[in-house]
């Protein structure tokens, strides 16, 4: 009896254990057939991927060669342009730097008030001359230079237009009819309404008026704006020099 019970217990335990172990191992222990199938699938996948990789490497190599060839072509094109304008790369760089300096000067002048710009008219003329000199140089036809130079040229023209708009002109009449001298012109209501500002007219017309005591009928004089009605230091110096020379009898 005892043996029978023990036996039944043993058999039951064996069955339970075998089902449990089989259930667990079934999840992570593949059969040989499954292994072979997976080996075949992954082998095929690997071979296809290797082929794909080889193709890609060939394509990448071809692209690298294409890039090298196009870079050479581009360099040759740039060299041809330099040869056309008769310049080296360094000369063009130097020219671009010079234009940059002039652009900075133009920017500074553009920011000035009308009165200050008028006083610094000389600088506008300097920039204009520098631009004209560069335009005379064949190198200015280079693409790195040309467009910037033309844009700068336009900015200088705009500054000159602005100066032009500021300045009135006055045509000198005769002494007998108009009593036109610098003093009387400055005194006129539509000019400065202030005779003491006559040096301003003189300084603005130094190319036409050597001696402020002598002006001629028909002369077209530039009349700068009145501004705040005070003479600039240059105008004051010119006036002081004139009066001193008058006192000393040099005039």
């Amino acid at each position: 009896m005892k043996y029978r019970s023990l036996l039944y217990l043993l058999v039951a335990a064996l069955f339970v254990t075998s089902f449990a172990v089989t259930g667990l191992e079934a999840q992570d222990r593949m059969t040989r057939d499954e292994w072979q199938q997976q080996m075949a699938e992954f082998t095929q996948q690997r071979d296809e991927l290797r082929q794909r990789l080889n193709t890609l490497e060939s394509e990448v190599n071809a692209l690298n060669e294409q890039i090298a060839s196009k870079q050479d072509e581009y360099r040759a094109c740039r060299e041809e342009i330099l040869a056309l304008v008769g310049a080296t790369e360094a000369e063009i760089r130097s020219l671009v730097e010079r234009i940059q300096q002039l652009e900075n000067q133009a920017s500074a002048l553009e920011r000035l008030s009308d009165q200050d710009l008028l006083q610094r008219r000389g600088e506008v003329d300097e920039v204009k001359k520098a631009v004209e000199d560069i335009k005379k140089d064949k190198k200015s036809a280079h693409p790195d230079v040309y467009d910037r130079l033309m844009a700068l040229d336009q900015r200088v023209k705009n500054l000159l237009d602005r100066l032009e708009r500021m300045v009135q002109t006055y045509t000198v009449g005769t002494w007998s009819r108009d009593r036109d001298c610098l003093w009387n012109i400055a005194k006129k209501g539509d000019i400065y309404n202030n005779a003491w500002l006559w040096p301003r007219i003189w300084q603005a017309n130094r190319d036409k008026i050597r001696d402020p005591d002598i002006i001629h009928p028909g002369q077209r004089l530039q009349v700068p704006p009145k501004g705040d009605g005070r003479m600039t230091s240059d105008e004051q110096s010119a006036a002081n020099r004139y009066y001193r020379e008058k006192r000393e009898g040099l005039r």
Partner: peptide
């Protein structure tokens, strides 16, 4: 390259 070719032609014309 296209831009360089265009630039070259512009330089010739200038």
């Amino acid at each position: 390259l296209r831009k360089c070719a265009e630039d070259k032609e512009k330089v010739r014309q200038r």
